[in-house]
Amino acid sequence: MSLVCDFTKQMPFNSLEIKFTFQASITAIMGASGAGKTTLFGCISGLTRIDSGSIMFDGKAWDDQKIALHLPASERKVGYLFQNLALFPNMNVYQNIAFGLKMQKLSKKDIELRVRQISDYLKITHLLYSSVQKLSGGEKQRVAMARAMITEPRLLLLDEPFNGLDEETREICMELVRQMADDFKIPVIFVTHYSSEARKMTNEILVMKNGTLTTS
């Protein structure tokens, strides 16, 4: 995997000036609140338009402002786990996981097969018809991960994925992310405020400061 970011994006109080090539299987990004980490994820995922420059993934342009190219998020196949998980409270676990596939208009049979496969892998099959509001923090994390992975993304973005978890659950979830990156051969970029967490996950640690990325 090669994700080449060479772009600028104006933010309310400063601007992002990103020039970095992501190549590691897992990359950690650290930085103070408001440094631009979430904006960076928005640009990579296609939810936010860059102002200038380009974003390339495996040799294919996702953004190129020289030719006014902006590939929409739906065509980038990026799995995005938001900081607040963003589970739909009015849907059960199955419906939350299946949501992305329904948007792709897959058949009911295909949706059920893929929901079962990812649920078995993440060991949450027994929760499929439970309300997400009754789940523990670790269970919600797995449901959110299943929803992000079920569309078979080429890149996984995790915004503070272990925030709010107790120590034991945090360790389990960190191991799960490492295992998924290996099993599914999918590159992972994750945001964290904890250096110890970053070091446990990867040797590729970046720091965002003043709108730029530097190697830790």
Rank of each mutant, 00 (worst) to 15 (best):
T27K: 11
G59T: 08
Y194E: 15
L71M: 14
T212A: 14
M30T: 15
K102M: 10
L87F: 10
M174E: 05
V93W: 06
A28M: 03
T215N: 10
C5I: 11
Y94V: 13
M174W: 04
E75R: 15
E139I: 09
T39E: 10
T27V: 01
S25E: 11
A98P: 15
P187L: 13
K123G: 10
F13M: 08
A181F: 01
K77T: 00
S52V: 07
D182A: 13
Y80N: 07
G211S: 06
A86L: 05
F57G: 00
E197K: 14
S107C: 01
Q133E: 13
S131A: 03
A61K: 15
K19T: 13
T21F: 01
F88W: 12
S136W: 00
N210S: 14
V93R: 14
K105I: 05
K108D: 11
N96V: 13
S130E: 14
P187E: 00
I111M: 05
E17W: 01
T202E: 05
L101F: 09
P12V: 10
P12G: 07
T27S: 12
L135W: 01
L16R: 04
T48K: 13
I124H: 09
Q133M: 15
H193M: 08
K185N: 15
E152M: 14
L128D: 08
Y94C: 06
K209D: 15
E175S: 07
G42Y: 07
I55M: 04
L106Q: 11
K108W: 05
A181G: 12
S136I: 07
I67A: 03
L176C: 06
T21N: 15
E171H: 06
V4L: 13
Y129P: 02
S216R: 07
S25Y: 00
Q65H: 09
A86H: 06
S45G: 15
K109D: 15
D120V: 04
F41I: 03
T27R: 10
I18C: 14
I189M: 07
L85S: 00
L122Q: 08
S52H: 07
A198P: 09
G36M: 12
G137V: 06
F88C: 04
Q179W: 04
A146D: 08
P161G: 03
L81E: 07
E112V: 01
G31P: 02
W62E: 01
L47N: 06
S136G: 08
A198S: 12
K19E: 10
Q133D: 08
F13G: 03
I189T: 09
T48C: 05
Y121V: 03
L122N: 09
A28D: 04
L156E: 09
K185Y: 00
K140T: 04
T169M: 11
L213R: 01
T192H: 09
L16P: 00
N90A: 06
Q179H: 12
L71P: 00
L113H: 14
Q104P: 09
G34W: 08
N90V: 06
I118N: 05
L156T: 12
E167M: 13
L122W: 03
V78R: 04
R178P: 03
T169K: 08
E197N: 13
G138V: 04
L85T: 02
H193V: 12
I55L: 02
N92F: 02
T151S: 04
P72N: 11
L81F: 02
V93P: 12
S52R: 14
T202L: 09
E175P: 02
Q95Y: 05
Q141S: 14
K102Y: 11
